Every structure is written in structure tokens, then in C-alpha cells.
Amino acid sequence: RHRTTFTSLQLEELEKVFQKTHYPDVYVREQLALRTELTEARVQVWFQNRRAKWRK
């Protein structure tokens, strides 16, 4: 699998949602996936990684 490189616009969208909730439900993730043109799975993994980073 290749590494997904996020654009600054995608990161902006993702971070905006992360500020509101660290655990977006499937509906929120789907909406975010559509807005960022990423798959829902990529969005889910981004949140997992972002939460790990936040905990440190």
C-alpha cells in the first residue's frame, strides 16, 4: 500500500472535525470522505492516528 499524502485542504477539513469530536460517527466520516475525496477508510485511519498524536 502506498502512503496517502493529504493536501492542505484535506487536512484543514479533517482538523476542523477533529476539533469538534475525536470520535466522528460513520455518517460524519462519510460526509468528510465525500468533501475531501478520500475513502471513508482513509478518514477513519487518519482519526486513529490523529488521536494517537493528540494523546502524546
Rank of each mutant, 00 (worst) to 15 (best):
Q19S: 11
V28S: 09
V26A: 13
S8I: 07
R3S: 15
D25V: 02
D25Y: 00
S8H: 08
Q10F: 00
F6V: 10
S8C: 10
Y23E: 06
W46M: 00
T7L: 02
R29K: 05
K53H: 11
T21P: 01
T5N: 12
T39Q: 06
A52D: 14
V17T: 12
R1N: 14
R51D: 01
V17Q: 11
E12Y: 13
R35K: 15
N49L: 09
V43M: 06
E30W: 09
Q31G: 10
V43I: 09
L38R: 00
T21E: 06
Y27S: 14
V17L: 12
F47P: 03
V17A: 10
A33K: 07
R1W: 08
T7W: 00
Y27I: 13
E15K: 04
F18M: 02
R35F: 05
Q31M: 06
S8Q: 15
F18D: 04
Q48F: 04
V26I: 12
T7D: 05
Q31V: 04
L34T: 09
L9A: 15
K16E: 08
V43Q: 00
R42S: 15
R50Q: 09
R42V: 15
H2N: 15
F47Q: 00
K53P: 02
F18H: 00
N49P: 02
E13W: 02
T5P: 10
V26E: 11
T7G: 06
L11M: 11
T39M: 02
R55D: 15
E30M: 13
T21A: 04
R29G: 02
L38V: 07
Q44E: 14
T5S: 14
L11E: 15
L11Q: 12
T4G: 13
L32E: 00
V17F: 07
K16D: 02
L11V: 13
K16T: 08
L14S: 01
F47K: 02
Q10P: 04
L38F: 01
T5A: 08
H22Y: 02
E37R: 12
K56I: 09
Q10H: 01
V28T: 13
K53M: 12
Q19P: 00
E30A: 13
W54P: 05
K56Y: 06
E13M: 08
R1C: 09
V43N: 05
K16L: 07
T36S: 05
Q48M: 12
R1F: 15
